[in-house]
Write a protein that binds this DNA or RNA. Structure first.
Length: 261
DNA sequence: CGTGTTGTTCAGTT
DNA sequence: TAACTGAACAACAC
């Protein structure tokens, strides 16, 4: 689930607990802790007050008046704040007990995890290979970013070192709206196509960030994704499934013209 | 028992 | 060198 929009949703959830103090740390599955032991995490966080959390791409930084906790959600992670009376979830891996309620980091597949950031240098090291957050990229920047890349436009948009935050679903959605085939070479796009891509990117970001998730709703590609015979919400033509940039891509062969082979 | 999954990393290749 | 590609990772659901 987690792409930029989803992580933004988690950030807002956590923001709701800003100012609250961490009263206890329950490590339910130590394998999600990537650079700290359960007792080390407890020592670092108990008694600390949560501050405004920040998001960059798909990373979430939980600031405190002490150290910062860095979350990544892989393909199946989530963050909730619930009452301690709520039934624990089977895949809860880490719980921060607060004055009221608790933060629950949940992840079925554990492809990523949680890091404790000691200092600024630590943090820079962790984030060093990330491009600008997708919400902060302007059209000129996007054009410059794409101009030198010979990989497919889809692979380039999903490359976190180029632009941070876009995953498989958001990228397919953007390309579909811009009527660009995912296999097109990034550097082959002309000015008009980049402008169209940028417009679609802004639209998708605006809508998904506002929702705090990638919606599966009418008029979106996401809504068609799991159907046995997905159809283009625009022209009603059949949608095609292919493999681009190592991932399953959905696109409309009528609206999104394939590159000449 | 295969196949597939919204992400990242790493080894190997262009 | 840098950019690029595909397999591997974990834990399921179907």
């Amino acid at each position: 689930m987690p792409e930029l929009a989803d992580v933004e949703g988690f950030r807002r959830t956590l923001e709701g607990a800003s100012g609250h103090r961490v009263r206890g740390v329950d490590v339910k599955d130590a394998s999600v802790l990537r650079n700290v032991s359960p007792s080390g995490l407890e020592k670092a966080l108990v008694g600390k007050r949560l501050r405004q959390p920040e998001r960059h791409g798909k990373w979430l930084r939980a600031r405190t008046d002490g150290p910062t906790l860095l979350f990544h959600f892989g393909m199946s992670g989530a963050l909730t704040i619930e009452s301690s009376r709520e039934e624990p979830h089977r895949h809860d891996r880490l719980v921060l007990r607060l004055d009221r309620g608790e933060v629950r980091y949940r992840d079925q597949r554990k492809l990523q995890g949680v890091w404790l950031i000691g200092d600024e240098a630590d943090e820079r090291r962790m984030m060093r290979d990330l491009g600008p957050d997708a919400t902060h990229v302007d059209r000129k920047q996007l054009q410059a970013l794409l101009g030198t890349r010979r990989a497919s436009i889809k692979a380039v948009l999903m490359d976190q070192s180029v632009v941070a935050g876009l995953g498989n679903l958001m990228t397919d959605e953007v390309l579909w709206r811009a009527r660009l085939h995912p296999s097109r070479k990034a550097s082959d796009l002309d000015d008009k196509e980049v402008a169209s891509l940028y417009r679609a990117l802004r639209q998708v970001l605006q809508k998904t960030v506002a929702a705090g998730l990638v919606p599966s709703e009418k008029g979106w590609l996401t809504e068609q994704r799991d159907k046995p015979e997905p159809r283009c919400p625009r022209c009603r033509g059949p949608l095609q499934t292919s493999r681009v940039g190592g991932r399953t891509s959905l696109c409309c062969s009528r609206c999104q013209l394939a590159p000449r082979a």
